[in-house]
């Protein structure tokens, strides 16, 4: 993005203002700023219980400059469906519904409601700001926790290496509902993130974006490294960024210089127990499989916009 455009973006009215209570360096808070920058002000946001709800809603202090509602943990998608139905009935068609939930509310406790919403195709853009555990309660395991990550309810120990299972492949499950748009994004590539949100807004019906939002507090890295950790996650292949339209992958974010998974893992306390273990190989194999599966290596296709945006390569 050129200088002029960046200044314009900065001058835009901020829809997610200062004074919220996210931890310093919060990837989720940054993602939300850019989501709203991409949607503009004509949206109603529904947020299920979680970090985002807690740090943005202490009574009397709201950073949201768009109408926002939090109801419960497991019903973000269905409250959003209700809002969408009301807007349709009222013929307020230019107002769009956005649900922004954490991985706990999306992968786990709200999964049934999410599937219902997707199957009905209700006109909601559902965005999962994914930090891979229940951070609001101190970092317990969720269905989004990656393999071998330490959590407080699946800690490494003499008989354990942390999370035993792979992260649920939710984008694939969402896509299987036949929705028009599914994408993964990372807070490390903000231009790509905004572009995907804008693209999602061009469709009607249920759409889904899953954004990797590193969490300095629980993943255990210094707060200035949030984007660095996010970038390494993408560059090692563990966090594939792609978008699907009508069931087909239409773009992937190519990895220019692949890095070993250890570079990503060693920055994070949640993986420290793994660094001298043989099982590390399994994660490297998993990353390599992911790279092959999505075709992440090699030059970008001509005209692919996704490599031009985002942060500077380091």
């Amino acid at each position: 993005m050129g200088k002029k455009r960046k200044r314009d973006a900065a001058a835009e009215e901020e829809l997610f203002v200062s004074g919220h209570r996210a931890c310093p360096g919060c990837g989720m808070a940054l993602a939300v700023r850019h989501i709203l920058r991409a949607t503009g002000k004509d949206v109603i946001v529904v947020t299920p219980t979680g970090c985002l709800e807690t740090f943005t809603s202490p009574y009397g202090y709201s950073p949201w400059r768009v109408p926002w509602i939090h109801h419960l943990f497991e019903n973000g998608p269905s409250v959003a469906s209700g809002v969408a139905a009301a807007l349709k009935a009222q013929k307020r068609d230019h107002i769009r519904v956005l649900a922004i939930g954490g991985d706990g509310g999306t992968f786990d406790i709200g999964f049934g409601a999410l599937s219902g919403m997707l199957e009905r195709g209700d006109d909601v853009l559902y965005i999962c700001v994914d930090n891979g555990a229940y951070m609001n309660t101190g970092g317990q395991r969720s269905g989004a926790t990656p393999l071998y990550a330490a959590t407080t309810t699946d800690p490494p120990g003499r008989r354990s290496l942390g999370k035993r299972e792979r992260k649920k492949d939710l984008p694939a499950i969402v896509a299987a509902h036949g929705v028009p748009y599914v994408a993964t994004a990372s807070v490390a590539y903000l231009g790509d993130l905004r572009r995907k949100v804008r693209r999602a807004m061009a469709f009607r019906g249920s759409r889904y974006i899953q954004i990797d939002t590193p969490c300095p507090s629980v993943w255990g890295f210094p707060s200035h490294l949030t984007l660095e950790v996010g970038r390494l996650g993408v560059k090692c292949g563990l966090i594939p960024l792609y978008e699907m339209e009508n069931g087909q992958i239409v773009s992937v974010k190519r990895i220019k210089r692949k890095v070993p998974v250890t570079e990503y893992l060693r920055l994070q306390r949640r993986f420290h127990h793994l660094l001298d273990r043989d099982e590390l190989k399994r994660l490297q194999e998993f990353a390599d499989d992911t790279i092959r599966r999505y075709g992440l290596l090699g030059p970008s296709e001509k005209g692919g916009s996704h490599d031009r945006e985002g942060g500077p390569e380091r």
């Binding site: 203002v17 919220h20 202090y61 709201s62 949201w64």
Partner: peptide
Amino acid sequence: VEGGSSLQ
């Protein structure tokens, strides 16, 4: 709550 009130 009023939107934007966290500026306080």
